[in-house]
Design a protein around this nucleic acid. Structure first.
Length: 321
DNA sequence: AAGCAATGCAACCGCGTCACT
DNA sequence: GAGTGACGCGGTTGCATTGCT
């Protein structure tokens, strides 16, 4: 899975995949002398490579503390949460994942997590639900399937919340292609009031849903009720005027409620990234990041009840099946 | 079994930043 | 302040592998 030899560059230095012999030379040298100047290292170590190539090989592959193998669910959550705040700051994200390199995280994001979020209807850039394809009834079966079949607990929570979010968009239509702010999320996580006009009534009627059941479930899914402090960061940093993230108001005392929120609620726009990175690096202690599933107990209970009840209706059961 | 497409990931490239003179 | 070199980061490339028809 590596590049084949491309040959030597104009300076006579080798490019392409590393051989075991080259790896051993690099390891031996760094273990004895440290890397020192990367530029001088290849000559001193007897390698016909540029210093940049040596640094990359060491930091991304040969370093003894590199953790290999699949990313755990917990690591997945951390990446999604941090990406929602930091954006594509892979090195900053990597500092919170011991043993993982920025390159590895970047590849994992591009090959797995991005697709996963897209499948759930979440924009992987802004981390807010996509509203440019609001064919809700057509999307519903996929969301339900996702909510029930996702391989991990975390996946299931995301899918369930996403499904409810769609219901809320059903009832609180937002403009198509909204700006990349937390607006959509705030609509959902704020104090939802269901619009009971004829159109929405008809749509819900097709699913044999009644408002009280939906309202109960939506209220139940509101993180401010699931866990008292879970909205702390969002209340602090989302300004009421713009609904945009204001990291300057983030006091750093926030524990990531990673499993009970959409993995977003933050704008990774360039204007906010610098502040976010600064705040993350200066105020968030990685030890304080908690990843508890327990906060969702209430939500899950409501969800099960909801699904059980609704499965009695033939149309709804068809969708579920 | 063969051909093709999609996927995963190591490695490269270009650019920005920082330190030093 | 300008110039230069080294380093690090994020985006991209290209090939091996896997999956599908």
């Amino acid at each position: 899975m590596a590049r084949s030899p491309i040959g030597n560059d104009e300076g006579g230095l080798k490019k392409g995949p590393w051989t075991p012999e080259e790896d051993q030379k690099l390891i031996d040298y760094i273990q004895k002398h440290g890397h020192g100047s990367w530029r001088a290292l290849p000559r001193l170590a007897g390698l016909n490579r540029c210093g940049k190539s040596c640094r990359l090989r060491w930091t991304n592959y040969l370093r003894p503390d590199i953790k290999r193998g699949k990313f755990s669910d917990e690591e997945e959550q951390i990446i999604i949460n941090l990406h929602s705040v930091l954006g594509n700051k892979w090195s900053a994200i990597a500092t919170h994942l011991p043993g993982r390199t920025d390159n590895e995280i970047k590849n994992f994001w591009n090959t797995h997590l991005k697709k996963k979020l897209l499948q759930m209807g979440i924009d992987p850039v802004t981390h807010i639900p996509r509203t440019d394809h609001l064919d809700l009834l057509a999307t519903l079966p996929q969301l339900l399937a996702a909510a029930n079949l996702m391989s991990t607990n975390w996946d299931q929570q995301l899918a369930k919340i996403q499904l409810l979010n769609y219901f809320m968009q059903f009832n609180n239509p937002t403009p198509v292609n909204p700006p990349p702010t937390t607006e959509a999320s705030m609509n959902f996580f704020g104090s939802p009031s269901l619009i009971r006009d004829n159109h929405h009534h008809q749509l819900l009627d097709q699913l044999h849903l009644n408002y009280s059941q939906l309202e109960e479930l939506v209220n139940c899914s509101n993180p401010t009720q699931i866990q008292g402090n879970s909205m702390h960061m969002n209340e602090q940093v989302v300004t009421s005027e713009s609904n945009r993230i204001d990291m300057s108001k983030f006091d750093g005392s926030y524990n990531f409620p990673s499993s009970n929120l959409l993995p977003a609620l933050a704008c990774a726009s360039p204007t906010n990234q610098a502040a976010a990175v600064d705040q993350m690096e200066n105020k968030i202690n990685p030890d304080e990041i908690s990843y508890s599933y327990s906060a969702l107990t209430n939500f899950n209970a409501c969800w099960d009840e909801f699904v059980d009840d609704e499965a009695n209706h033939s149309d709804w059961r068809d969708v579920l099946e």
